[in-house]
Amino acid sequence: METLSAFPHLTTSEFEDACTTLAARYDQHSLDQNEWQSVELIYQYEAKYLRITKPLQTCTVGRSTDKDQHTRSDEDEDDIEELEDDDDEVLPTTGGLEVLVVYDILLSPVYRVPVLYISIADPQHRYPPTMQTLYEHLIPSNFEAQAQSGGVIGGISIQDHPATNRPVFFIHPCQTAEAMEESVGRRNITAEEYLILWTGALGKCVGLNVPLALMQQNEV
């Protein structure tokens, strides 16, 4: 794969080639990791984008506040610790089906950089696209302050998905080009390397980490 023609921006063909290559890389290494459940190429109106799914690894109770922690009795703490030991990293299920987080990566026609749309697939609709859902179930606690202030991720809002027209979480790409320039420096990179770096930098803010097996520099 050739180096980018207009870094830090992507052409449509560069983006689609990167999506195709990353999907193929996942097919090759899927059994070497357990973080992502699937990687698919989605075709919509002659356009191509990438969909990554992974189990929702969170308990439905959300985060506890400091006030709650101080007002619990010792007996309550013992009960909670016992429950946590039994249900470590609980995966919410419905009739044996896992609740999934869906990450759609599309190319912004304006900014010419990848953009991330996030939703939770749950048959019981327990995780609506609200900011409460976002902070309780998708954003790791160590990234909360960055998400609230915008930071390098550019801020998160709720918008209609351009392909499905359903309300989803959306990370604005206004600072993506600058962030990629700082991350890559003067190196020449391919579109695939760009997409992996972008996913690693942006995805970790919303619970999407690139599996180590996919970052190996093996030919697909």
Rank of each mutant, 00 (worst) to 15 (best):
E46Q: 06
R51G: 00
L41E: 06
S108Q: 12
A147C: 15
D74A: 08
D85E: 11
T60W: 02
Q124W: 13
T199S: 13
Y103K: 10
G95L: 10
T20H: 07
G151Y: 15
E182W: 07
E2V: 00
H9Q: 10
E16Y: 01
C19G: 02
E182H: 12
L195Y: 00
C59L: 07
Y194C: 09
S141M: 13
F169H: 09
Y135L: 14
P92M: 08
V99F: 04
I158L: 08
T3H: 14
D32C: 05
H70Y: 08
I105D: 02
E35T: 08
A179Q: 05
A191I: 13
E98V: 02
A191R: 11
G155D: 09
D104M: 08
T3S: 13
I171S: 07
E181C: 13
S13P: 01
N34G: 09
E181N: 04
I80W: 14
I153N: 05
Q57Y: 02
Y43G: 05
Y111W: 14
Y43D: 13
K54T: 15
S5Y: 07
D76R: 15
H161T: 00
Y117R: 01
L214C: 12
D85R: 13
P211A: 06
E14W: 14
A179W: 08
V61C: 14
R186V: 11
Q44K: 00
G96V: 12
Y117G: 00
Y43F: 14
S64G: 07
G155L: 02
F7D: 04
S30H: 09
I120K: 00
C59Y: 14
R126S: 04
S5P: 00
P109K: 10
G200D: 11
T58H: 15
L22I: 15
I120M: 04
H29N: 13
L212K: 09
C174A: 10
D87V: 10
Y135K: 00
A201F: 03
T65R: 08
R166C: 04
Q124T: 03
A179S: 07
V220R: 15
V101T: 01
I139M: 09
G155A: 13
Y103I: 03
D32T: 01
Q33T: 10
V99E: 05
T94Q: 09
K48W: 01
T60C: 08
P123Y: 12
K54L: 12
I42C: 02
P162M: 03
S108Y: 05
S119R: 13
F15Q: 04
L100P: 00
R187I: 03
L22F: 07
T176C: 15
H137I: 07
E35H: 11
